[in-house]
Amino acid sequence: MTPSASVILWGVLLYVSAGLIIALAFVAVGAPRLIGHGAADQGPAPMTLGARLLLIPGAVLFWPLVLRRWLGEPL
């Protein structure tokens, strides 16, 4: 493998690994709390297990955004 290929592959691997850890925590506890019913005063939105599983790929891809929102900052 060329050096640049292994640098890219390692980079992707690191990003995805970090993403997986954050995504799992996110769908387990954070996801319902980070989005209201559409109105801020209504508390967490109920989510089924299926919906949580479907959110994992998006959270792996966008984990920096997920983390930001979780830490209470705007997008």
Partner: peptide
């Protein structure tokens, strides 16, 4: 296409906000 498919759930629409 992966990005589109992974964010296709309505949840992401609310999370990311419709314009984004």
């Amino acid at each position: 296409m992966l990005v589109m498919a992974a964010t296709s759930h309505d949840y992401w629409l609310g999370f990311l906000t419709p314009p984004l």
